[in-house]
């Protein structure tokens, strides 16, 4: 028996991420891509995606689960390829948005020099890092985005070092806009993408991206996990304008860190130091609040 498709095939072709992509069930990146599309309000960006889950998502040639022009870049090259793409769009006076869509491996590790240079040149790019804190595509190895205490296939006892503060690194480039994104805070997400879209130059968005496969969590928990990460203070939602002016978008509400940790088996490690992590969160917040007080971004 065949039934009429719920979403007609012709409507499936133009979205950023089409149904039938190969992301795991419950992948945060998928939510991010859906929301990116919705925030862009019908605009169809060009996506530059390096080696990462995000490009495997596209499926196998000649099919593309991306319904927009997409370049599968070499691992470190998203920002350089995107520079070329956006430069040519600009010289042809085409108001096309070029998006770098990269994982934490491509952003925190191998791609640092590339995006750093693009940021320093203030290339007209919307750079979005979906950070699942792991080399997910290769089966779950540590990256410099992996938090302390997390078990990966290359930190089997739990990672010793804390997560890299990529936002600080980005801010140090004094780019026009940098912000963190949560897939549990839709309005905030939408506003930030729209804010970024309206600006010119290098705009950086960091999205904590739940990865049921790598985090060893329930796919259905993905959004709730990020919500908890924000509420317990682990993942602050904030914006940095010009690398200097801060705005905090959500503050911890007393939700215990344990609520976040206990639903992910990746945290079941001998080296997880909850007190240290909690202290780190407090320190991060003290720093963030200080910056937001001393160098506030204009009120919304």
């Amino acid at each position: 028996m065949t039934t009429a498709p719920v979403i007609p095939p012709e409507a499936r072709c133009d979205g950023i991420l089409r149904p039938g992509n190969t992301n795991c069930a419950g992948c945060g990146m998928s939510i991010g891509l859906q929301w990116l599309e919705q925030a862009l309000d019908g605009e169809r960006p060009t996506m530059c995606i390096p080696a990462c889950c995000g490009i495997v998502t596209a499926g196998t040639f000649p099919t593309s689960a991306y319904g927009v022009p997409t370049v599968a870049c070499t691992f470190a090259s998203a920002a350089s390829v995107a520079t070329g793409v956006s430069s040519v769009y600009a010289m042809n006076e085409e108001d096309e948005l070029t998006v770098c869509w990269t994982g934490d491996g491509g952003t925190y590790d191998i791609g640092v020099a590339t995006w750093s240079a693009a940021a320093e040149r203030n290339e007209d790019l919307l750079y979005i890092c979906y950070d699942n804190e792991i080399y997910g595509n290769t089966g779950g190895q540590r990256s410099s985005a992996t938090p302390q205490g997390v078990k990966t296939s290359t930190t089997t006892a739990g990672k010793l070092e804390p997560k890299k503060d990529i936002m600080a690194l980005v801010a140090a480039h004094r780019v026009p806009y940098a912000a963190t994104l949560s897939v549990a805070h839709r309005d905030d997400f939408m506003r930030k993408v729209k804010t970024a879209r309206k600006m010119k130059g290098f705009r950086f968005l960091l999205m904590l991206s739940p990865c049921p496969t790598g985090w060893k969590s329930e796919p259905g928990d993905s959004v709730d996990l990020i919500d908890t990460a924000v509420r317990c203070g682990l993942f602050p939602l904030y914006e940095v304008y010009g690398g200097r002016r801060y705005r905090i978008n959500a503050r911890p509400d007393g939700t215990p860190l344990q609520d976040y940790i206990k639903r992910q088996r990746r945290y079941k490690s001998q080296t997880l130091d909850l007190d240290a992590l909690q202290a780190q969160i407090r320190e991060n917040w003290a720093h963030l609040e200080t910056m937001a007080r001393a160098f506030p971004a204009p009120e919304l």
Binding site: P5, I7, A25, G28, Q34, P212, G220, D221
Partner: peptide
């Protein structure tokens, strides 16, 4: 919140899931 974009709201609370593509993650339910 559907990560796959496979839900349609046809109005008046008439929601449809496209089971051809739904991976069953359960985020809609959560």
């Amino acid at each position: 919140y559907c990560p796959e974009g496979i839900m349609v709201h046809r109005g008046s609370g008439n929601y449809e899931f496209d089971y051809d593509y739904c991976k069953g993650c359960g985020i809609c339910a959560s």
